[in-house]
Design a protein around this nucleic acid. Structure first.
Lengths: 226, 226, 226, 226
DNA sequence: TATGAATGAGGCTTCATTCAT
DNA sequence: CATGAATGAAGCCTCATTCAT
């Protein structure tokens, strides 16, 4: 299983191997159910070495979260074209987001499902990353409003709420996509759609879903129950 | 502790007490970290009685999920006005959803955070409930399209994607609202807004966010990257 | 080994069995080297039961110390004749002390060797017991001085030092006696004397050693280096 | 950390550094709780080097005991004036003993507290040292008896018991003194006196306590319970 | 002379689960 | 209907010790 049994590996490499194994295991089993034994075996090392390098299950999880969060933020940031129009930037970011979560489903699972479920010490790290992204999106919405010459129509608070909803929808779509994609053994895919959307499809769906609506909002057209 | 020590209680009542305790405990600690000891104590009974009535931790969790899922579906279903217009129906459903998740945050936490995080046996039950809701929403979108006389503009697949995004956004908002509402000690609420939105506010935000965009879509106005 | 396998024993009894096993094991191996496994086996129960009743190794050790300290103080206290002369009281106390430590060598070993060696939480309990005894002895010395009509000759501080030395000598003799008495396998007994002194012998030795000297001190005869 | 990292140090020096670190660590933590890691770090070397030079934890501890025991015996021996009167010799020896234990509290702690607590292999080495000292003291008592012209009054066995008690009292005083001297944070010092006695004070206390009594004994005056 | 890399073994603790009453 | 007594299995973590350089 784990890597071919190669002895005497430099620390940095071993640490990466261990964290890879940890991401996988935490994603598959959840924080509590994942055992250090399993992680060590998957990494192809003995348990004491994991402790020597990463100190404890908690610190290991924390390190994993930080690494995956940084990778995600980097991917999204790198995907946007800096000087494009706001809608273009948002589309780029979403595409980057969906592409990254599709390529690293286990990292995304750890961030989205596990970290938020297991108490403050971890949730805070994820919340910080999420807040960064929400701020970025809110900035784009605000910029778009200005570009459209209707800054006054949207209160800051409203912009924040919309950004939150957008990010939430994106997260939800990403998880849904990954659930569909799981190998054929999963019974979950059976319910609902089957084919996994590409990153561009997902981004397009979301842009259509939201951006168009934002356009109306910016022109003061609001939906009201009555 | 838990309930006042009253002996000789009929089975149905005892079972409800146990499941209430279980919901609370699972929501607070997560599936793995919740101990049968804690659940039994919180329910005010001895552990063997829990096993006598609910057989095992797994079955107990399963029963909890089914109960909470049914309650949520019932609440949402009951909230819609059967013969109203599609947008009105959607708004009603969303309002009912946000109201129920706000009144039963622990049930919602178990459904949304715990059940999906802990392997197939449980996730399937939640996925089924979610699929039911998604179908309902998709039906509304389709109906709205028909009402607007533009059925042909939206492919079924597109409708399903939009329904998914809408449900995802709603779930995200619901969780966010509950996180805000947690007692002041939570550091998570600090990031982003502070005041918890009412159910109607949340539903309105989402309708504005999505419905308006849907309107455009139905008229064939699509957003494209180029 | 451990007691004949008797199931379903009331808690109080089981707790005593466990503590007996613990005293034995701690005395034999020392606090750190004693394993909960060994204690449980010696007590004839499973390890979880030990934890259920006594919570942790630390608490178990603490409980053992308290029990043994109380037993020793009780034994010494019970041995003195309340209204006798001071020297008689001291002799009685010493006899009781030597008799108790001889009958409970493992308890004494835990108090004298283990508890003082393993950090404050435990050492404090023993120090408290020891202080109680030292105060008692100091009181007797003071009383004797008064009886002899020479209260002024001995400063309080001097009395305390003497009491300390006397208690220390008694402890040392008790340990020495127990070391001698250890079964034939011990190589320690070979060095020095062989026959174990009786409690009365030991008390007599100490009275002769110290009391007679105190007599001189009380009359102002002091030893000086020059 | 420990010493400044100086490479290529001759073996003898390195060994001393290691044993110094070991004494300190064993005194602070106890034999079992002391880890080879901590010792190596405190010595400023890598763990394999410790094993290369000292083979195992057990041998290291043994070496430490031998070194400290030899140092103590040497100090006591060197302190006595060879041709002085017996009482003078005893006083000198006690003074030397208290001075040495005060200057090397960690070595004394290892000898007195740790070595005797951890099984035969180590206890024997300490017992041997102790026996040597006891014989020396017994010799002095015998000599004193002869000097006083009353050799017949004291049986050999009685002399041995008295020597034991005297040594025990001295040990007890030494430990008590070191306990007092520990930094102000120790709660143990609070019980009993506060100021640490000098070596000469301690020796004087003991001489007064014991020697005077011995004088009486030598003249046939015995204390009897009745 | 000296060390970074690595592990087998074992200890403390907890938990889901079952008897016997 | 209800429980006090009890345990097998497993998890986290640490340690003394060695290998290859």
């Amino acid at each position: 299983m784990g890597a071919a049994k190669s002895k005497r590996v430099p620390r940095a490499v071993r640490e990466r191997q261990m964290m890879d194994a940890a991401v996988r295991t935490f994603a598959r089993r959840g924080y509590r159910a994942a055992s250090m034994d399993e992680i060590a075996e998957l990494a192809g090392v003995s348990k004491p070495l994991v402790y020597l390098y990463l100190n404890s299950k908690e610190e290991l999880f924390s390190a994993v979260i930080r690494r995956e969060a940084a990778a995600l933020v980097t991917a999204v940031t790198a995907a946007v074209e800096k000087d494009a129009a706001a809608d273009r930037q948002l589309w780029c970011g979403l595409t980057g987001f969906f592409a990254h979560t599709a390529e690293h489903p286990e990292g995304w699972a750890v961030l989205h499902q596990q970290a938020r479920t297991h108490g403050e010490p971890f949730a805070i790290e994820v919340a910080a990353m999420r807040a960064e992204i929400v701020r970025f999106v809110a900035g784009l919405i605000g910029a778009a409003a200005k570009e459209a010459g209707c800054a006054g129509e949207l209160a800051d608070r409203e912009v924040a709420g919309l950004a939150h909803a957008l990010v939430g929808a994106a997260e939800s779509l990403a998880e849904w996509a990954n659930t569909c994609a799981a190998d054929g053994t999963s019974t979950l895919g059976v319910i609902g759609e089957r084919e996994r959307p590409t990153a561009k499809d997902a981004a397009g769906t979301l842009m259509n879903f939201a951006w168009a609506g934002l356009g109306r909002l910016m022109h003061g057209e609001r939906w009201t129950p009555a």
